[in-house]
């Protein structure tokens, strides 16, 4: 049977100009929305920056090194809060990094059968799902009463160390740091676990084949090979800790001065400052708060971009 060509069949109809432009319009439309989503970051920075402008003009970089925050005098400096942000985040990292990486090792290697391992992985992830404000209320009514005797003991036995120089008053920098550690733990554990799991099985077998024990393989092969992934996870966690607001606000005591370097003293972070003052702020105070928000934004931006670069390099390499 011979094939005939029938030019009148609907299959051969030219696509109409409208259909074609509809199609490319669709593609360009989605691209435009994607660009808009990408640009949102810049829009946020510009808007917050614009509202911060009066305070930036008035206080300049002195804002970063002055610890005087006085609504009545119209004098604003965020050193206390920047200090508090950094110290609470460092405490959180100090506690969460070893534990998080330890969990990642335990849950990435074959210590447990998958049937038991998967639920534990899920439970650790759930730690990240609990709302910040719930950690806050739990911290106020449960954690601080438990921590207080421990803080008093620290102060009485190790009070000569500047870190423990003040008597704990209940809420304080240490309590905020501890809750932050709990909150960033799942991030570190999850990303470190991904990094370890991504190490090729061949390397693991090569090490075992040479007579390495499981832990020698972990320390000498898997951790170095997964290092940049783990580092990226730690950076992301640091960014999250610096910006975390509610639990910190509820537990840090919200003192607007640096009295000592003691972690048992009360303090505040940039985020807790914003949380406490924005709702009732007016005039220059709004601008100063926007300036503080911009500082926090810049801090977390740097940390997050570094994390993103580290994580990308790592995912390209493996």
């Amino acid at each position: 049977m011979a094939l005939t060509t029938d030019h009148s069949s609907p299959m051969n109809r030219q696509r109409s100009g409208f259909a074609r432009s509809l199609d490319s319009g669709f593609v360009w439309g989605t691209a435009a929305v994607a660009i808009a989503v990408g640009l949102l970051l810049a829009v946020i920075a510009l808007q917050v920056g614009e509202d911060a402008l009066p305070a930036i003009q008035k206080f300049g970089l002195g804002f970063l090194v002055s610890s005087r925050w006085s609504v009545i005098d119209g004098e604003f400096g965020a050193l206390t809060q920047i200090y508090g942000t950094i110290v609470t985040s460092l405490i959180a990292l100090f506690l969460a990094v070893p534990i998080g990486v330890g969990i990642a090792i335990f849950l990435s290697e074959d210590f447990l059968p998958p049937r038991i391992k998967q639920p534990i992985v899920f439970l650790v992830e759930l730690l990240a799902a609990i709302p910040s404000v719930v950690y806050g209320i739990w911290g106020i009514f449960v954690l601080i009463p438990i921590l207080r005797p421990f803080g008093i003991w620290l102060h009485e036995t190790l009070g000569w160390i500047p870190l423990f120089a003040t008597a704990p008053a209940g809420p304080g920098i240490y309590a905020a740091g501890l809750v932050l550690a709990i909150m960033i733990l799942p991030i570190i554990a999850a990303i470190s676990r991904d990094a370890m799991v991504a190490v090729p099985a061949e390397l693991r077998q090569a090490a075992y084949g040479l007579g390495a024990t499981r832990w020698e393989t972990i320390f000498q092969i898997l951790l170095p090979a997964g290092f940049s992934g783990i580092a990226g996870g730690v950076m992301l966690a640091l960014g999250r800790a610096m910006g975390e607001t509610m639990a910190v606000t509820m537990l840090i005591g919200n003192a607007n001065t640096i009295d000592s370097f003691s972690i048992l003293s009360q303090g505040s972070t940039v985020a807790s400052l914003l949380a406490n003052q924005f709702a009732e702020a007016g005039g220059l105070q709004i601008s100063a708060l926007m300036y503080a928000a911009l500082v926090l934004f810049a801090l977390t931006l740097v940390v997050n971009i570094l994390a993103e670069i580290v994580v990308r390099r790592f995912s390209l390499k493996l």
């Binding site: 994607a34 660009i35 910006g243 994390a307």
Partner: peptide, 28 residues
Amino acid sequence: RLADWVNFFTNVLSGVPSIVIGAFAYAV
């Protein structure tokens, strides 16, 4: 490259502290 950039900025956006986003919405 465009998608790379959008992905990058979206990831960074997810790391912006929620309180800063609150400040932005307050301003806008």
